[in-house]
Nucleic acid binder design. Structure first.
Lengths: 120, 120
DNA sequence: TCTACTGTAATAGTATAATATTACAGTGAG
DNA sequence: CTCACTGTAATATTATACTATTACAGTAGA
């Protein structure tokens, strides 16, 4: 299974697909000039309609990350890692602010980070 | 202005309203047995339809956080701080995992936390 | 050349969120 | 009592996300 979708999330499915594929590229689980799964294959695998995957791929192409090869599939072009970094950091910043607003202590956040990254 | 809404967010407006009010209660900007703004007043202030605010208040009442007093408004009952804490920490955990997946370094996250909480 | 896969397009239908609008009933201050 | 505020309810409309389905054209391997 390439990845899964959270159908209870407020984030639209087509956005989740885009984000997961961006992650795959950053993590080099798919490399440049390689094909990603076909629209129909991925749609069946994650249990969504092919139109939804098609939308994700179309938008990723508009962002210059993948490119369609008609009749063959979509290949990976590349990704602006700095942009991905900035977007995620900004998302992170918002939730840290929100946590502070809720009177959550700094040490509680650090504990979570240590759990995930390791305490070293 | 009590608070603002991000109309570009994927999070529904009625959810954003619920979250903001929960924050206000935790931060004691509104206290127990106090009235929160009327449906119409808040709707006008944040620029949404009164039905949307009505939905938020209805759901907050179902959660036992506020209570309607017909003809008068809604008063604050109280809030389960532990539940709020757990929910936010879980949300935080997800984005930390996502950041790690994107090869963002631990120190980059710590930097953001220090910016917001102070470096002490 | 077949055939089975690709992407692409168009149409229709459903669910949800949000809006706009109107209406009605309860509350409380003057 | 009156009036201006409350909550509550119902209806219609729009936009978006998603599904279902059918269709057509390009690609590549047997």
């Amino acid at each position: 299974m390439w990845f899964t979708i959270d159908f209870h999330s407020h984030v639209p499915v087509y956005e989740q697909i885009k984000n997961k594929i961006k992650e795959k590229i950053v993590k080099k689980e798919v490399n440049e000039n390689e094909f990603i799964p076909s629209i129909r294959t991925l749609a069946k695998e994650i249990g969504v309609n092919l139109n939804t995957v098609a939308r994700s791929y179309r938008e990723l192409e508009q962002e210059g990350i993948i490119q369609s090869v008609r009749g063959s599939g979509y290949i990976v072009i590349g990704i602006d890692k700095d942009k991905i970094f900035d977007e995620k950091i900004e998302e992170f910043r918002k939730i840290v602010i929100s946590a502070k607003n809720l009177k959550i202590e700094k040490r509680d956040l650090l504990k979570v980070i240590d759990e995930i990254y390791g305490g070293e």
